[in-house]
Amino acid sequence: MVVGNDHEAGAEVHPIELVLARLLRLGSLIAAALLAVGIALMAMGMTVVAPKLITAGLLVLLGTPVMRVVAASIIFTKERDWHFAFFSIVVLCAMAAGIYFGKGD
């Protein structure tokens, strides 16, 4: 009976959601901090450093979706969920190809 309960709990807890939530929260906090400091410095007239900080913030934010697909592929591989590990890799390849061909024109 205890085993049955454990099994049910195991089916309900999806660690992938919590891992991704943590990753995305970290990404958005770093991005928000860089953007906020950058904008504050810009308002204070520091026009040399400020745009660089803002750009850094935007780049961190840009990295979060990519990181989360990478993280998902690692988690699915670890769980030996080969279907979904493969799907994640298809998504990553399509993203990479999109960037490659987009830069072409």
Binding site: G38, M42, P51, G57, T64, P65, A94, I99, G102
Partner: peptide, 28 residues
């Protein structure tokens, strides 16, 4: 939507279309 937008955003960045002074405040 973040994943679909990411490839496009990288391209816009590379082309220099992302202006930090416009994008910064709106994105925050």
């Amino acid at each position: 939507i973040g994943v679909t937008a990411a490839s496009g955003a990288v391209v816009y960045f590379a082309r220099g279309d992302v202006k930090p002074l416009v994008a910064g405040p709106v994105v925050l």
